[in-house]
Each structure stands twice: as C-alpha cells, then as structure tokens.
Amino acid sequence: MSTAGGAATPSGVIAPEGTATRVDPGPDRAQYGLAAVLAVIGAWTVVDSAGLGPGFADQAVRPAAFGYVIGSALVLLAVLLAVATARGDRAEGEAGEDVDLDRGTDWRTLAGLAGVLVATVALIDWLGWAVVGALLFAGAATVLGNRHWVRNLLIGAVLSVASWYGFYVGLGIPIPPGVLDGVL
C-alpha cells in the first residue's frame, strides 16, 4: 500500500489536501445521472399507474391518481434539475459533524462496505443472524480501517450472539437461528 489517504506533509503543516481543486470545476456531471434516475422512476410510476384498474365504486380517489401526479412531478423535477445543472448548479455534499468534504471520496472503503452488505443479504437466511452478524461487524470494521481482524471477529461474535439472545429471550422476537439451530 502506498500513500493512500494523504501523503506525508512537510513539517507538521496543518492543512487538508485536495483544496486546490475548487477552481472552476465545470458542470456537476453526476447530477445529470441523478436527473436521469429521477426521470426513470417518475416515468415508471406513471406507466405503473396507467396499468391500474378504475378501483372500487366507493373510491373517490382512483388508485392511479396519486401515481400520475407524483410520477409526473418527478419527471418535471428531473428536467428542472438537468436545466439547473447545465446552468452551473452544483451539489453541495452534506457537511456533517464527522465529514470533511475537503478530502475526496474514498471509493475503496465504500466498495468494501457494499461488498459486506451484499454478502450479508446473500448469507443471512442460510447462516442465520448469529453467524452473519459477527461476519458483518468484523467485515465492516476491517474495511473501515481496523486491521485487527481477529479482535474484530471476537467482538462481532459476542455482539451477534448477545443480540440474538437479547431479541429471542429478552424481547420475545424469535430470530431464526440458521445453521446454528440446536447450538444456540
């Protein structure tokens, strides 16, 4: 691994990197993508509404009515967004208490987390919460930058088994045990 996440700054200079890229960045291309997605969702909502029946006799508002209104509103908003983007409108990312927008987006970490979530979805019905929960915690913590994966797994296992019992016994929510049926 090279100097990902910030190269060595000379003699303790306290300034985040990447601030210099703010000079006329041109239109926010990604926003066109957002507009396209909105338009697709809106169009689909309208199409879906068109396929609905007239509804019951006592329904004063036809089931399709809201779909038409909301769907066309979405399409309209998508167009407005595209126009605004072309005129130089830029999205301002949400600057939370814990987010430093001056640093670029860390796609590697994001991709790792997405992978962990997809694996969770794929395995949860088969392996059950106690196993998948532990893997989820350990995987997420490791991807987020904690290298001690043995410790992460231990914490994850404790958390997931404890939460399983907590839900099953304490709250009366019977989470299926999965492969650990009979063990837990």
Partner: peptide
Amino acid sequence: AEVRQPVVRDVTEALLEVADE
C-alpha cells in the same frame, strides 16, 4: 528536526515508508 504528521491508512507502513524515503 522536521516534524511530519501524516494521516494514513496504516501507521506502521507510513513510518517504514518515511524511513525508506
């Protein structure tokens, strides 16, 4: 002395890299 305060993925590797550099 020169004091460096990098924000890095891995503290150990960062130190070794500076040593190499």
